[in-house]
């Protein structure tokens, strides 16, 4: 597969995952606001939006609604859901002949909807509804991808992109909740705090799945355990890093061992960290450092994958 094409597929998936994560977090937050005092709401907003926005030139400020709009439909906001979808589509267009017609149609339709003149009106009337529908369309795209595209190298690059983005996004989000203030795991939750943790689960589309494992009894330690270490929940960090490791072994089937060893080593180390980690230990120790470590591991894996398969120097291969 052409390196450029692999790069396009990988980035298409990353941008879509980014859009989905943003849209879901914003939708949940807009709804959670109803249960919060204005002060609580504003404080929570700034933190959340800060975790999504890029670039972060100055401190994020502003009314929640305005911030949510900016992060959703603002064309001048590079990290907005609109721009993520646009960039995903730009990448998809360049590999139009490699993805299925159904995938293209699904992505194109979503883009055209976000691009339509009445998108702003739709947003103003029912912002939560709007965001939820975007999430649904993106989930549909993932399903269409799985069932209409050959699960060959290109598909594996798509998965690699999706889970690399997801592992980073979830660990960034968790860091907001666990990294900044010490969490007393034995503490009895006040109702406000309860809603806060509930909303965290929902932002990871994890509430129902959590209940099946732990019942509706929400405890920060259990939330952390579930979102970090659960081996079977698709939005847990462990699930994502498992997939990264798995997908890396499938991409670039013809590439020699020497070229892939660095990325595979990094991915294996990350996986081991999550396979053998324990939440009690983490909460007692440096969870902040742990979550940031995951983010930087993902960046390193990305870089070494890129160096091995996409942007490599041709001289080494010509002489080999």
């Amino acid at each position: 597969m052409l390196s450029r094409v692999a790069d396009n597929l990988y980035w298409m998936a990353r941008y879509l995952e980014r859009a989905e994560h943003s849209a879901r977090v914003l939708a949940v937050k807009l709804e959670a606001m109803l249960e919060q005092t204005p002060e609580e709401a504003t404080e929570a907003w700034v933190r959340v939006v800060a975790s999504l926005m890029w670039p972060l030139a100055q401190p994020v400020a502003g009314a929640p609604d305005a911030l949510a709009y900016r992060q959703t439909l603002d064309r001048n906001q590079p990290s907005s859901v609109f721009n993520s979808i646009r960039l995903a589509r730009d990448n998809a267009r360049q590999v139009r002949e490699l993805i299925s017609t159904e995938m293209w149609a699904q992505l194109n339709t979503l883009y055209l909807r976000m691009h339509a003149v009445d998108a702003d009106d739709e947003w103003r009337a029912q912002p939560v509804q709007f965001l939820q529908e975007v999430v649904e369309e993106l989930l549909l795209f993932a399903g269409v991808t799985d069932s209409t595209m050959r699960h060959g190298e290109g598909w594996h690059f798509i998965q690699l992109g999706r889970y690399t983005e997801r592992a980073q996004a979830v660990s960034r989000l968790l860091d907001l909740y666990f990294g900044s203030q010490p969490v007393d795991v034995t503490q009895k939750l006040s109702s406000a705090r309860y809603f806060d943790w509930l909303s965290l689960l929902k932002q990871c589309t994890a509430f129902e799945a959590y209940c099946k494992v732990y019942t509706a009894h929400i405890e920060p330690a259990k939330v952390a355990e579930f979102l970090i270490f659960d081996p079977e929940f698709p939005h847990s960090i462990r699930f994502a890093t498992d997939r990264i490791q798995e997908e890396l072994s499938h991409v670039a089937p013809g590439a020699g061992g020497a070229r892939r060893v660095q990325a595979e080593r990094l991915a294996g180390r990350l996986k081991a960290q999550l396979d053998y980690g324990q939440v009690e230990e983490l909460l007692a120790g440096d969870i902040d450092g742990f979550l940031q470590g995951i983010q930087s591991s993902c960046k390193q894996i990305h870089q070494s994958m890129y160096d091995a398969f996409i942007g490599y120097g041709v001289d080494e291969l010509l002489t080999a």
Binding site: D7, W11, W54, P78, Q168, K299, H302, Y306, I310, G311
Partner: peptide, 9 residues
């Protein structure tokens, strides 16, 4: 394009 995308991590 690659460089631009790199920056957006």
């Amino acid at each position: 394009v690659h460089a631009q995308q790199q920056q957006q991590q």
